[in-house]
């Protein structure tokens, strides 16, 4: 029995917040902007005050639909991945995006596994096509708009959080930008890492003198490893090792191997982290999204598909090239890879 369907990306659309310089603005977020500068980012994007993740997502989706020469009524399923704090708790931003697009009756799904949401969203689209012959065209929308009330975008787990969205129209049997396979590994031992401490049902309100913006997530991670440098170092090695594992697993599922890999698109992490990911897979950093990451910042679940689009526009990948979209997501933690044949 076939376990997957062939699907490809027909068209994409993007939208971004205002582009800002790191050097010019980091001092407004942190007391030591030179440390932020060492991460390697030049610019990032910040959504205008009053604009929302839903606005960004809908704008990207409209562009993708226009580029595909489709109307919203042509879409069989809308899958939204939202990687930061939503506008409201107990709310479904996939329905909000569908409403903004003028959809009515089209099923929507919301993927909330932070920076992993893009991979989950693509898998869900493929799964929906496999389950129902009526599902032939899917709109996947991935958005990140950092809530500056909850996190410091300049002190975001070694990255600079950035606001942007990407949308992709996927069609069964489309011969370009084909999703070949995916792989996903979760280590639930790290389920509490990098969580936003206050505002959920366990701790709705921070105790006196504490708040999310000043809660350093590394403190909890150090505690988890009993402050043992050896255990922490093993964790760092696990991050790289599992990147290689999911890439190899996805390649194997597609009947490919690493020698056929043209490019690695990792999350838009800091330069050192991208270099380590490239080393883990055995590709030079020049065949990654490292330069785009400097310009874009970390747009959560939107990173990989935005970079794929940019690499195509810039002529850095060509039809037939095999590209590994790869990410590590926390909380989770999750490692995941989706293989795309351009």
């Amino acid at each position: 029995m076939a376990t997957s369907v062939e699907m490809g990306i027909v068209a994409t659309g993007t939208s971004f917040g205002e582009q800002r310089g790191v050097a010019e603005t980091a001092g407004a977020y942190v007391p030591d902007p030179e440390v932020v500068g060492a991460l390697g980012y030049r610019t990032y994007h910040r959504v205008a005050d009053g604009d929302t993740a839903t606005d960004l997502a809908a704008e990207a989706a409209r562009e993708a639909l226009a580029n595909a020469d489709l109307d919203i009524v042509d879409i069989d399923l809308i899958v939204v991945g939202h990687s930061d704090v939503p506008e409201y708790l107990g709310w479904d931003s996939s329905a909000a995006v569908a409403r903004a697009l003028g959809a009515y009756g089209t099923p929507t799904v919301l993927c909330t596994q932070v920076c992993a949401a893009w991979s989950v969203a693509l898998d869900h689209a493929a799964g929906a096509m496999a389950l129902s012959a009526d599902t032939g065209t899917v709109l996947v929308v991935l958005v990140n708009a950092a809530s500056e009330a909850h996190t410091n975008r300049m002190d975001f787990n070694g990255a600079i959080a950035s606001d942007g969205a990407v949308a992709a129209v996927l069609r069964r049997g489309h011969p370009r930008l084909r999703r070949l396979s995916s792989a996903h590994f979760t280590n639930p031992e790290y389920a509490d890492f990098f969580r936003i401490e206050f505002g959920g049902s366990a701790a709705p309100v921070p105790p006196a003198g504490r708040d999310n913006l000043h809660a350093d997530p590394m403190v909890g991670i150090f505690r988890h490893f009993d402050r043992d440098p050896g255990r922490f170092q093993a964790f760092m090695k696990e991050i790289s090792g599992r990147i290689a594992d999911v890439v190899d697993q996805a390649l194997s599922r597609a009947g490919k191997d690493r020698t056929q890999l043209a490019r690695l698109i990792y999350l838009n992490d800091n330069q050192q982290a991208i270099r380590e990911a490239a080393d883990a897979v055995g590709l030079p950093i020049e065949r990654t999204n490292a330069e785009l990451a400097r310009e874009l910042g970390h747009m959560g679940a939107a990173d990989q598909l935005i970079c794929l689009r940019r690499h195509i526009e810039d002529g850095e990948v060509a039809p037939g090239d095999l590209v590994a979209l790869v990410g590590v997501a926390a909380p989770g933690m999750h490692w995941f890879c989706t293989l795309i044949e351009v």
Partner: peptide, 11 residues
């Protein structure tokens, strides 16, 4: 800022 130490270095 000069990347001499990182999180592991802190520990």
């Amino acid at each position: 800022a000069t990347a001499v130490i990182d999180s592991l270095g802190v520990l």
